[in-house]
Design a protein around this nucleic acid. Sequence first.
RNA 1: GCUACUAUAGCUCAGUCGGUAGAGCAGCACAUUCGUAACGUGCAGGUCAUCAGUUCGAUUCUGAUUAGUAGCUCCA
Length: 579
Amino acid sequence: MAKEKLDFDQEEVRLKYRHTTSHILAQAVKKLWPEAKLAIGPAIENGFYYDFDLEHKFTDQDLNKITKEMKKIIKDSLPLEQFTLPREEALEFVKDEPYKVELIQDLPEGEIISFYKQGDFTDLCAGPHMEKTGQIKAVKLTSVAGAYWRGDSDRKMLQRIYGTCFPTQEELDAYLARIEEAKKRDHRKIGKEMDLFAIYEEGPGFPFFMPNGMIIRNELENFWRQEHRKRGYEEIKTPLILNEQLWHTSGHWDHYQDNMYFTKIDEEDFAIKPMNCPGSMLAYGRKLHSYRDLPIRMGELGQVHRHELSGALHGLMRVRTFTQDDAHIFMLPEQIKDEIKGVINFIDYVYNLFGFKYHIELSTKPEDSMGSAEEWAAAETALREAMEEEGLSFIINEGDGAFYGPKLDFHLEDSLGRTWQCGTIQLDFQMPQRFDVNYIGSDGEKHRPVMIHRVIFGSIERFIGILTEHFAGKFPLWLAPVQVKLLTVTEKFTDYAKAVAKELEEAGLRVEVDVRNEKIGYKLREARNERCAYIGIIGEREAEAGTLTVRSSKVGELGELSVAEMKEKLLKEIQEKAV
RNA sequence: GCUACUAUAGCUCAGUCGGUAGAGCAGCACAUUCGUAACGUGCAGGUCAUCAGUUCGAUUCUGAUUAGUAGCUCCA
């Protein structure tokens, strides 16, 4: 075989390569368990999977056995041959594979039905594929997990084997090492190490924030308030518990009940809020508003509770109580586009500040929704046009809107590249009608305002999780729980160290001093493990010169600085919110 | 919620083919007064997640429960 260098940078090459590997996986599984029924096996980001329906439960040992079998298939370097069949013959061909039968039945009439054959194994597949199984070099089966047939939780759960593959063993090893490295940034691990937050068995999905975590949280909230004041928002706070009737009015009773917690007060039924909007509606509706006052932008750091499925909980990323940095904007119809653009730019400003990369999804009308098709179309158009006019690209997430309106979702990545919805902008024509809120127009008549729900962080909890993984715990100075830690070389310099700490503290910095009778190497190691942003070392030289020897967690040694220089440097960095 | 897996000291883990458990780090005491990632000695610390069952005896085997992990479903 002619040695042909694979261009793995090209997406179609990667997909072809991985897809062929998934066929090899299926062939190996069929060889070992001929009774296994095949579902689907696509190439995905970073690898591939194949779904099987099989009584026997795959174990980790099985993955080794399967890998051995795959290596044989690769060694045999079987050619992959495509052929097509007319529909009836195709159905006859796969009659022992019920999932394949279903797939073929769902293909439109007249579609060419394509198969790929390698050795004694044939799979329904549109391709494309590599020419020979021998072209696959380095394979690793990574995990086995359950997955519903066709992603439908009402249908059977199949066994999914995940794997990855690369043109060389070195690339595979590098990839696996990268994953291991990324796991060290996991916010659950760092959160424990830095004592940011904790979740106890007594409250699954209900995180506790520890003092270090509270510093980050409070700094984020301060920043949030400052930025919202600049942009013409006012702040309110609405109650966590409101009576059940309110949730009938809002539509949550009909559309969101399963996710809500309820309680009783004096025999009357109350609900714990899963969203802040109904409270905001009451707040807006308590007085008459003139068209001259619109838009009204009402912000709220609102804590909500939602019954998320136990299997979905994930550190701070997916919890059962979280604080949304919410706001509801009430506006005239002609203000819609500008307001949406304002929020888009606001979100972009905040995410850029942290250096996040993000992508945007436009989520359209779900099956379970309120309002007419026309209203939904108008709302979707408004969101789409605002995006297009701002020159932003986005993907469509069909049927994933909120029950009261379509939304733009802003997704951020965690350390392993999993994306989490953070910011969202939701257009809502329903809630204003349901709560019968209005404004007085220039004609002296009542009119219905349009409303936007929006969040920037999404939830403070999730955002802190993302921040933690993004910075691997080395937070920007303005967020860092410990901004400076002073270490004394011996106890002789305790007084000087405390005087320096006092001066820095008086400038508003968060300072800790380690005057313990320990070796400097030991104290330094500990301070570094704690991810202190700056470490100041104080010994004889520094005490005499009125300085400290500084090391930054991000850029390393900075040499000797006077206390005044240190103070100025850090205050500037905080002021700039440098990352 | 579903499928699979996991649960031993504050943390990271070892271990018991069934006879009630260990290490390192952290903590405490003593010693050391030291210059850039771990000084030493000693002490203390565990209902082996919970509840049942089998057994003379269960941390170990079985079942249920709870919590967690990966993925699916769902969502900020």
